[in-house]
Nucleic acid binder design. Structure first.
Lengths: 198, 198
DNA sequence: TTTATGAATTCTGTATTCGGATTTCGCAAG
DNA sequence: CTTGCGAAATCCGAATACAGAATTCATAAA
């Protein structure tokens, strides 16, 4: 049995709305976030907004400039590189752990193969449609699957926080540069290697 | 010139007090945290306490059991292993980056050597005194130095959140098992290797 | 035209209050 | 002894109210 899902508090809802808005660049970097305005737009009081801001600040998605208030964090090349570096080592760790489980636990490889191909197929369909957003979604889903199967739940949590930042630019990259193809080929290679035990 | 330090808000102060109390096990795992009690003990209203709790929850230092309120997170073996795994790969990443800078930037190696030996000497003195808490502090300082010199500021931030958990048990390990010695020898080896460029 | 000064505005952090949901406790019924 | 039920108490999230700091703006002086 699992604990039954409870309704999310207003703070959480505000947090998610703001987080998604920032990550999908509907709130542009550098925007000044005023608690009252946001509260009124979302139809809540200032209190849940302030709490959401606190979490966004600890995520690094918003930054405070002195006592001038909170602003949406800028997208700078160096910062993205830093996020990418960390995500990379987390990916490597997760892959190592998954590979370890494949060789240790019988039947785990088949399970991995099943889940992986399902996601890859969906991703392939998105690519045929030329749906960039869906491609990114499935890209993330593939990585998330590996995090979850790694057996270390902290990896998924930490990596997600870096994906938040990367999502802000990945959509643009996939759409404009058209690098989507190579990524999917790589994913198939990764899946094969993992099923084989790295 | 640097932006002058502003007084920390009450929320931040409450957050730090609670965080340290939890990490140094003055608040034992499983303790029920009641906002009103804490607010009264610290001489503030419930509001800053609630905000601090929110951050502690996102750190994973406190967990909520249904709607029964927030409790200090338990220390379990599996969780510690997970934290340790992630910290390990972050350490490796930081070391790689530092080694890279040593070979790239002239004078960086000497700088590293200077800072590193300073910390190691202080740590050695703490060991002679048998001061376990100071040893752990300098152990953390050594790692933090590497994070900071890596050039990726996110590593320090992320790794710190894992040290929060590890600190809860490391003190006990150093005191009881007396494994302090080997750690310091390793640190000297690490420093030598980094100065040489990995 | 530029600089100083002080009032008005704006915005945040904190305190207090309100409403609701849950747990606890006492007592009666099976 | 266990089960069921209702009142009281507990505690949290959210709204509202208040105070202080910073910025803006307008007006006066150089």
């Amino acid at each position: 049995m699992q604990p039954l899902a409870s309704v999310p508090s207003r703070s959480e809802q505000v947090y998610h709305v703001l987080r998604d808005s920032i990550c999908e660049c509907r709130l542009e970097p550098g925007t000044h976030l005023v608690q009252e305005d946001i509260a009124e737009k979302l139809g809540v009081s200032r209190q849940p907004v302030q709490q959401a801001m606190l979490l966004l600040k600890s995520d690094g998605l918003v930054v405070e400039q002195g006592k001038r208030g909170l602003y949406v964090a800028p997208i700078d090349r160096a910062g993205m590189r830093h996020h990418y570096q960390i995500r990379q080592v987390l990916d490597e760790l997760a892959a190592r752990l998954v590979a370890g489980r494949v060789t240790e636990e019988p039947g785990f490889g088949a399970h991995l193969r099943r889940e992986g191909t399902a996601i890859l197929e969906e991703g392939a369909r998105a690519r045929e449609r030329g749906d960039a957003a869906a491609m990114v979604r499935h890209d993330v889903a593939f990585h998330t699957m590996i995090y979850q199967l790694s057996g270390n739940p902290l990896i998924a949590a930490k990596a997600e926080s870096h994906w938040l930042f990367l999502r802000r630019v990945v959509i643009g990259i996939v759409t404009h540069v058209g690098r989507g193809h190579t990524a999917w080929v790589q994913h198939e290679g990764i899946l094969d290697a993992l099923v084989a035990g790295d």
